[in-house]
């Protein structure tokens, strides 16, 4: 019985994945801003310019490395492509209050959102942080990447430049 169920499930997954295109729209979930205001993810916008959504946490070392690496180049990226980065913290109530002083302490200029019970993380199927999404001008998620290796930010930027020019990115 269980074998049957499992095979059906596998079939289901395959069936669905075939039907699936890689691009998708963001799920519609409520998170919070750093000052506690409700923020719906449908408000993630950037006037037709590319958007980066980066899932992170104050206790996640590679996440902080990635966001720190981008922070050094963020001004240039913004001037050249108009890209905007939303840093979605999955810190829960144990470290949520630490996010604001942490972000300021680092001197980051990102738009920071708090996903304290991982509702957004779950809705977009993130397993572990860091997990980064790239969204094109039309609001489609066109690329995602998990983990961080030194130098990933430059590869991400190559893709952002393409998006800013209205080109497709091929992965």
């Amino acid at each position: 019985m269980k074998t049957i169920l499992f095979s059906l499930f596998a079939l289901f997954v395959v069936n669905c994945s075939i039907a699936q295109t890689n691009e998708f729209k963001l799920p519609n979930v409520d998170v919070k801003t750093m000052d506690g205001k409700k923020f719906n993810t449908s408000e993630i916008k950037n006037d037709g310019k590319p958007i980066i959504i980066s899932f992170w946490a104050t206790w996640c070392k590679p996440c902080v490395m990635e966001l720190s690496a981008i922070a050094e180049k963020y001004q240039d990226w913004q001037t050249e492509t108009g890209v905007k980065l939303y840093a979605v913290s999955i810190d829960d109530s144990k470290s949520m209050n630490r996010v604001s002083p942490f972000v300021n302490g680092k001197g980051w200029d990102y738009i920071v959102l708090l996903d304290a019970n991982s509702d957004f993380k779950r809705a977009i199927n993130v397993i572990n942080v860091p997990h980064t999404f790239l969204i094109d001008g039309a609001g489609n998620v066109v690329y995602q990447h998990t983990t961080y290796a030194e130098g990933d930010e430059d590869l991400l930027y190559e893709k952002i430049k393409k998006l800013a020019k209205g080109e497709k990115i091929n992965e």
């Binding site: 972000v103 300021n104 001197g107």
Partner: peptide, 12 residues
């Protein structure tokens, strides 16, 4: 929990 923070500085 109380925090004070501005760019480059944070206390919690």
């Amino acid at each position: 929990s109380t925090s004070f923070s501005k760019k480059g500085f944070g206390v919690l």
